[in-house]
Amino acid sequence: MTVQPLANGFCFGEGARWFEGLVWFSDMLGEAVHTVTLQGEMSTLALPGHAPSGLGFRPDGTLLIASTKTRQILAYDGETVSALADLTDLVPADLGDMVVDAHGRAYIGSQAREGGVIVALDPDGRATVMAEDLSFPNGMVISPDGTFIVAESTARRLTAFTVADSGALHDRRVFADGLDGPPDGLAVDAEGGVWAAMTLAHQFERITGGGTTALVTDRIDMAGRTAIACALGGPEGRTLFLLSSTDAYPERLIGTRLSTLDAVSVDVPAP
């Protein structure tokens, strides 16, 4: 696999998504959301006063943005940004990553190292805690068979849930344990394989559910850079977009512009 540079010059990229021919991602320390074309042209949505992280799109195209420290969910309709929900009373720590299901329901992680939770925000505005006692819940995906998978960074594992028709998460179980490093952002492919950013291992790995032992089918070495987040997309769904930085701890990168967005072709496409 050959990693190709696509864009740089931003502070700390997170929450990568592919939508309508563009790569979207948060610049958490740069208080912005960026979009990048396949030719590397970058545009910026400024979010002063917010440190954005998780992103997700509702079926109507509305972009949802997790504002980490304000613990709010923002909505961007293509013209204006508005506060959609305040989750402060439901969460024990700052917000992190997000995934939005086909019904427009958003799942948002609150990144406590112990006692982390996942909150579901329904299209009608109702917010409910759906999972508790997680170890720094980070990247989240919903696989083609409907399995909900979350990265527990400090536990170095991927945890799976079954999603009820109501959106509730139940039947908690281990998807993959004993990972090579703390997992951050996730992306899922058409076969249910999960690409995970392995921060301190400096690589991206494709993992299939193996329970107590992670089954790694592919590795992408980042030459010492910290793997942060990834997304599957491109014209045929076979491009894996990679966000990386020079440090796993954002506070050490304030004022820098050392994060990069790269791309690599993979065999199994997006769902």
Rank of each mutant, 00 (worst) to 15 (best):
T2H: 14
L6K: 02
C11Q: 14
G15Q: 04
R17F: 11
E20Y: 11
F25E: 03
M28K: 15
M28N: 14
G30R: 06
T37P: 06
S43E: 15
F57V: 08
G61F: 02
T62R: 06
I65K: 00
A66Y: 01
D77H: 02
D77G: 07
D77V: 03
L87R: 00
L87D: 00
T88L: 10
D89C: 12
L90M: 03
D97I: 09
M98R: 00
A102Q: 13
A102M: 13
Y107C: 02
G109H: 09
S110H: 06
R113E: 14
G115R: 04
V119W: 01
V119D: 05
L121F: 09
P123A: 11
P123L: 11
G125Q: 01
R126F: 13
A127T: 06
T128V: 13
V129N: 04
V129E: 02
L134S: 06
F136N: 08
N138W: 05
G146P: 01
G146K: 03
G146F: 07
V150S: 00
A151H: 00
T154G: 10
R157W: 00
A168E: 11
L169W: 07
G178M: 02
G178Q: 06
G185V: 06
L186K: 03
L186Y: 01
V194H: 01
M198C: 10
T199V: 14
L200D: 11
H202S: 11
H202N: 12
F204N: 02
G209H: 02
G209L: 01
G210E: 00
G211W: 00
L232R: 01
G233M: 02
G234M: 01
A248G: 15
Y249T: 14
G255F: 03
R257I: 11
V264K: 03
V268Y: 07
P269W: 09
P271A: 07
